Structure formats: C-alpha cells, structure tokens
Computed example of a mutant assay.
Amino acid sequence: MRVFVAGGTGVLGRRLVPRLVARGHQVTATTRSAARRGLLEELGAEAAVMDGLDATSVGEAVARARPDVIVHQMTAISGKPDIKHFDRWFATTNRLRTEGTDHLLAAAAATGVPHFVAQGYASWNGIREGGWVKTEEDPLDPTSTGEGAAALRHLEEVVIAAGGAVLRYGAFYGPGATDDQVELVRKRQYPVVGNGAGHSSWVHLDDAADATVLAVERGARGVFNIVDDDPAPAREWLPHLAACAGARPPLRIPVWLARPLAGAAAVAMMTEGRAFSNAKAKRELGWEPRHPSWREGFKEELA
C-alpha cells in the first residue's frame, strides 16, 4: 500500500517507517523541518516537509502522496517533562490532535483516502472510578490533563466518526522515549506521591510500532489499547525504573506537599490513575507484545 505517515521523525515514527518499508509498503513520511528530510530518506521513505497546523500544507502533501492510508503520529513533546503545567507543555501537541487531525481528515476526504489510523494515549488516564484496569468500553478521564484530555476526546470522536482507528498507546519506553524521565529519577526529582496506588500502562516503542503496522494492514477500525500485559501502580514501576537506571530509590512525599509542587495531574496519576487492558488488540489485531512487561523491558533498555 501507499502509506502516508504524518510525523515520521518522532520517537515512534522512527520505529514505524522502516517496518512499513520492510513489509513492502511505499511510504511517504513527513517532517516539519527540511533539515530532517535526510533522516526519513535513510529510513526508506519519501520525505515530505509539512506543517501539520496549516491546512494548505497538509492538503498539498497528502494530494502529492496519493496514499491508501494516513497514519497520524504528529506530536510536539520535547524538553523536560512539566506535568505541573501540562497545558503549557502540551500546547502544540494539543493543537496537532485537534486542528492537525481535522486537517488530515479533510485532506483524506478530499483525495479519497479510504483508511485513517491515529495516535491516542492510554497510560494512567482511564476514568477514575471502579477497578484499576480499563477496556476500550470505558471512557478516558475527562479531567486528567486539562486541555490535553479534551484534545484526545476530539481526536477519538472525529477519527471514529470517519471510520478510522485510534491506537491508544501506553506510556512509551525504548530508545529516546524515557531519557528525560530517567534523568529526573537519577536526580531524585521524580517522587512517589502518597500511597503510589495509581496505576499506569506502558508499551515498548517496538511493540507500539508493530501494532500500528497491523492496524494499517488489517484496515482496523475503532479504538484499541496498545499497552503491555502488566498494568502496575506507581509504587512498583517507579522504584524499579530507578533501580534499573542505577539510581537511588525515589523519594516519597505526601499528597498535600505534591499538589503545590507537582500539580493536580501528577497527584492524580500517582494516587488515582487507571491503567488499561490490551485484550481487544490481541484478539482483533492478532498483536502480541514482544516486551510483555516493563519489568524486564526497563532492565533491557537501561542495562
């Protein structure tokens, strides 16, 4: 197939593009910077410079590529994590998940692209009621990350309405995905908050890329949680991450202190977060993560 990957130079795009090429697909991948065209060409794709927030730029890039499927991987997450000011940290990503998604869907409609796959998120942001592990039938928490939660809700609604697929990836780990977090852990600036009972789901970049290839090739439609087999509370995964990084155990701080220091989102993640089940992706996509648990995965990546 002709596959158009919007956001080909991101941490997942760099794992996805060569997999699609190896499977025999003709890939056009985009970057916002002309200086990064060479990276995409090295990965085997035809490179296109595109501004995902400019409707004309998106429309022209899609029209030139004439794809059979569009894969939306556009984000703008960089720099030191700033969960306290989540809306500011994710401002451009939120626009890419709203305006950028709308531009890509409009371009798909204008050029007759029959299939659309988009990046969602499913780590700790399940609805904060009931059990600790959620399925695709459970809603995302509408208050988890402020404007970010609203952006994800918009993305899911418009993509599903268009007959596409949303892959709710867990928290990424793998080459280049957790460097900033590990640095904070080594500096003991990433504490366990309160009882640390809030659950999260993780996924290795390679497993996320494999699931995306399956969604492309099988014409998947609907929502899929792309997470590993081992949802776990912060009081388990964070000390393990520190140990694998050769760092001292994380500090533990009470909720009353964490709220002004780290913000409401960090407190919710650490104490009330709800993780996700991958049963549907296994059943309907035939996906099996090669890294079934972050426990072994962290060791491998940080060895």
Rank of each mutant, 00 (worst) to 15 (best):
G10M: 05
L16C: 01
V17W: 03
V17Q: 00
V17C: 00
P18E: 06
R19T: 06
V27C: 00
T30R: 00
S33E: 13
A35N: 13
G38K: 03
E42S: 11
A47E: 13
A48Y: 03
M50N: 02
M50A: 09
D51T: 07
D51S: 11
A55L: 08
A55E: 15
T56I: 15
E60Q: 11
A65M: 06
A65F: 03
P67S: 09
D68P: 06
I70T: 03
T75H: 00
A76R: 12
I77N: 10
G79F: 09
P81S: 08
D87E: 13
W89R: 10
N94C: 11
R95P: 04
R97I: 03
E99R: 09
L104C: 11
A106P: 12
A107G: 10
A107R: 02
A108P: 11
A108L: 02
A109K: 05
T111G: 08
V117K: 05
Y121A: 04
I127F: 08
I127Q: 09
R128L: 04
E129Y: 02
G130V: 04
K134V: 14
E136R: 07
D138C: 15
P142W: 14
T143M: 04
E147Q: 14
G148S: 15
G148V: 04
E157I: 01
V159C: 08
A161H: 04
L167C: 04
L167D: 00
P175D: 09
D179A: 12
D179Y: 04
D180S: 15
D180M: 12
Q181T: 13
L184Y: 01
R186S: 08
R186I: 03
R188Y: 08
R188Q: 14
Q189Y: 02
P191N: 12
N195H: 14
G196W: 00
G198Q: 07
G198R: 03
H199G: 10
V203G: 08
L205P: 00
L205M: 04
A209G: 00
A211R: 00
T212C: 05
L214S: 12
A215Q: 07
A220Y: 04
G222K: 10
N225Y: 10
D228L: 05
D229Q: 07
D229S: 00
R235C: 12
R235Q: 12
E236W: 01
W237D: 02
H240P: 01
L241G: 05
L241C: 01
C244M: 10
P249V: 10
P249Q: 11
L251I: 07
R252W: 11
V255F: 07
A258K: 10
P260M: 03
A262R: 14
A265T: 15
A268F: 13
M270G: 12
R274L: 13
R295G: 02
R295Q: 13
G297R: 07
E301C: 14
E301G: 09
L302D: 03
